[in-house]
Amino acid sequence: MSYSDLGLIDSEVIAERHVRALDDSSPSAVPTTGVRVFGCGHDEAVLFREMGTRLGLTPSITEEAVSETNAELARGNRCISVSHKTQITNSTLLALSRVGVEYISTRSVGYNHIDVEFAASIGISVGNVDYSPDSVGDYTLMLMLMAVRHAKSIVRRADTHDYRLNDTRGRELRDLTVGVIGTGRIGTAVIDRLEGFGCRVLAHDSRPHASADYVPLDELLRQSDIVTLHTPLTADTHHLLDRQRIDQMKHGAYIVNTGRGPLLDTEALLSALESGRLGGAALDVVEGEEGVFYADCRRKLIENKALVRLQRLPNVLISPHSAYYTDHALNDTVENSLVNCLNFESGRTA
């Protein structure tokens, strides 16, 4: 199993191929078919309608995430597009199968929110999408810089008009070693950006293919001042950084996670942070984020106690799974999700 970013299909290439074909054809040659889009926010809905027209698709928009209770809305559509924000249960997959769904395009690189094997067993294929790796690459570098420059505590104090420096001396990336775990499209984008800062970069992947200094995982953990995670979430990578591996890290090191929350053992991370073994963490994803991230929880009790503990720490940055969220990446995601459905309907494979 590679730690590279997953890519069931090279959607960007296929999208370009489809757009060229449509541009070169007459209006009468443009195919027309339908697709039901679930879990679709306003910003996505605008893009789905614009791109659907261009690609010859008629998207039907549903704001709510797909579920067993609303699966009937997909009747008449062999293809649906779903968000990554909600777990799709096997009972939902069964309900979709009963109304004739044969293909699910998830608007994400990862598909750990869908039991792909179960879906296949009931006749449903699942496809993912690629989107601009620069979105997450840029965000990851931002989190690294914020972590090593103590941005959270500095900004919070400034917000209360406390402008003293206190003990907030930061560190420069050129003086640090950064360990990149997973060197697919996103991991490679991070490595490309780090080269401009002059820091030493180590990499780990079971199938190395980037231009980087690859080392065993244990060695990367021992030598890195910052460890950043860019692997897919699988049975093999669940709690990839567990208590034992976190204990191998340098004293005062930082962890950055823009991959998936369960790549990190949260309790082990909290223990290392609260004891002072780690210098800090910057997390765009956390275990148990479902039902919390993407919701207005200002007047709600947060039941994820580990998340609350993390947010109380002055050296921990939390953002709500937003690293991918740029105009460029959203355009890629919507277009490639529709292209997946076009390919399925026309019998094309990547």
Rank of each mutant, 00 (worst) to 15 (best):
residue 2 S to P: 11
residue 18 H to G: 00
residue 19 V to G: 00
residue 19 V to K: 13
residue 26 S to D: 11
residue 27 P to L: 07
residue 31 P to S: 08
residue 33 T to L: 15
residue 33 T to Y: 09
residue 42 H to C: 08
residue 44 E to M: 13
residue 45 A to Y: 02
residue 47 L to Q: 05
residue 49 R to G: 00
residue 50 E to L: 10
residue 52 G to V: 03
residue 57 L to E: 04
residue 61 I to A: 03
residue 64 E to L: 13
residue 68 E to A: 15
residue 81 S to E: 07
residue 90 N to D: 12
residue 92 T to S: 12
residue 95 A to E: 05
residue 97 S to E: 09
residue 97 S to P: 02
residue 99 V to W: 03
residue 102 E to D: 08
residue 104 I to P: 00
residue 104 I to E: 02
residue 106 T to S: 11
residue 111 Y to N: 08
residue 112 N to S: 12
residue 114 I to F: 04
residue 122 I to K: 07
residue 127 G to E: 03
residue 128 N to D: 12
residue 136 V to C: 04
residue 137 G to I: 05
residue 138 D to F: 09
residue 143 L to E: 00
residue 145 L to K: 04
residue 152 K to E: 05
residue 153 S to Q: 13
residue 163 Y to I: 14
residue 167 D to M: 10
residue 170 G to D: 04
residue 174 R to F: 12
residue 192 D to G: 07
residue 192 D to R: 15
residue 195 E to C: 10
residue 201 V to M: 06
residue 207 R to G: 04
residue 216 P to L: 08
residue 228 T to A: 10
residue 230 H to M: 08
residue 231 T to V: 13
residue 236 D to R: 14
residue 237 T to V: 04
residue 238 H to T: 13
residue 243 R to N: 09
residue 256 V to P: 01
residue 257 N to L: 06
residue 266 T to F: 00
residue 275 S to D: 09
residue 278 L to V: 11
residue 281 A to H: 01
residue 290 E to N: 10
residue 292 V to W: 06
residue 294 Y to T: 09
residue 295 A to R: 15
residue 299 R to E: 12
residue 299 R to P: 00
residue 305 K to Y: 02
residue 306 A to Q: 15
residue 311 Q to W: 06
residue 314 P to L: 07
residue 328 H to R: 15
residue 328 H to A: 14
residue 332 D to Q: 03
residue 332 D to L: 02
residue 349 T to L: 14
residue 350 A to P: 15
residue 350 A to R: 11
